[in-house]
Amino acid sequence: MSVAENHPEEYSVEIEGLTRIFGGTKAAIENLSLTVRKGEFFGFLGPNGAGKSTTIKILCGLLRPTMGRVRVLGLDVIAEPLLVKQRIGLLPEEVNTFERLTGRELLVFTGRMYGLSKLEATARAKELLEFMEIADVDRDKLIIDYSMGMKKKAVLAAALIHGPDVLFLDEPFNGIDAVTGRAIREVLGRAVADGVTVFFSSHVMEVVEKLCTRVAIIDQGRLRAMGDLDELRAATGKGPEATLEEIFVDLVGGDSERGDLSWIRG
């Protein structure tokens, strides 16, 4: 019996023995087990192709696992995907949304799909757009014409409009400028302060180090380490000054030998 099963009310996310195989042979995730406590800001790290996005998709009910058990807020994601989706918000890595709506229309539409009344959805949309600083954008401007940062902010606002209990963010800082990044950090900080659990994958180690209370590092679909920064340092035998980046590189083998490119010097 796992720890999570003893105290299910403590955990927002419980993954046990998760495996996802693509094309019959390639395991994107292999026997992954981890838990995330309620209200935690959880960092999910790994190199490209490690299985981060696949894990997040499974947690959000967008992909079926090949094996293993996945629970979000105590609900089985495979058995009750709609109940899970009702209580979570997702910012996917690739923005895949209704680009021919305006930002305001997208938020109102999304809110109504979550069961909010039109009036309530409109009021929340206005507030969120102002908080994200995209309320001043031309009212008729379609999302297709937004910059990458604005698109991310609009989709994050859509993920928040129904007041989710858990927020899944897949590489939220990819392709955005410092100002937008700061706005997103502020929103996330506010959400965590209000008791929302944030499950967050990123390549930006400084951000993860600064924001996350606990971190899991995966590589080739397998969990390499999990814990807060001190626990990770201890697990890798690093000193108290070691940064998350150093720990990460140590765990996923980023210092392997490369060619010396001596021809560059002519």
């Binding site: 709609l82 999304t110 799909m113 979550y114």
Partner: peptide
């Protein structure tokens, strides 16, 4: 494109 609705709580 129905994939844009997959994350929403809609059957």
């Amino acid at each position: 494109d129905i994939t844009k609705l997959f994350h929403l709580p809609v059957s």
